[in-house]
Design a protein around this nucleic acid. Sequence first.
DNA 1: ATGGCTACAGCATGTAGA
Length: 255
Amino acid sequence: MRLSTLNVNSIRKRAPLVREFLDRAQPDLLFLQELKCKTEEFPGDAFADSGYRWHAVGQHGGRNGVAVLSKLPFEVVAEVLPGEDEDTHARYVEVAAGGARLAGIYLPNGNSGGAEGYAYKLRWMQRLRTLAAERLEDTTPYAILGDFNVCPTALDLEPGALPPTDALVRPESRSAFRALMHLGLTDAVRALHPEERLYTYWDYGAAFNANRGLRIDHVLLSASLAERLDKVEIDMSLRSQEQPSDHTAVTVTLR
DNA sequence: ATGGCTACAGCATGTAGA
């Protein structure tokens, strides 16, 4: 089974790029973040003859939004991360597919909205940890894929790419990420490339050519899936295209 | 650090991204 994640930064702008990626990479499931559209605006026509079925969770106001596209039959298990009343952010989609439970997430950035914006990010991480702990009580293989908006360690950003006060690298953000990992999840990229500088995001402008990047898009695997981990791929070609997303795709292959 | 990018709402800039 092959699983991919990609922050598209507007699916309406990037539908052809996503289609090209599916045709070429052929993941069984692809999780998308930052649709920046309403559910009914998802450009499903671009995938009509692709062999993939899709499910989108959009949001009004052109913010957030997550989706999944799948070659395998799947059932949508959740569209909301539990734990907070009146959370209208479209940041979570969870499916059952291929005998596994798979969550696609768009974790809050945390740099906007002042103290409350950052507090929301930390609460969201706590809520995710609570739900992940629940899922891991079950023996069903489990994975969380998506844009975590956290550089877990100093190896996960080009030195100087962010100030130490940035919400992506603040100690509380990293601590919350570690707390999630300590439930027994494996960072797929780090399992196979423990010391390599690998990035999944480069700011628009000069950052890509200078490789001033961040590793913030992650695939976390339960023990049963980590045992099956065969390969991880970070698709640099997506970021080199005309009018790319500022992120690129991460794909894991499981035996 | 920020906006020098980019996208969106909506039509002038403001907000967000990371």
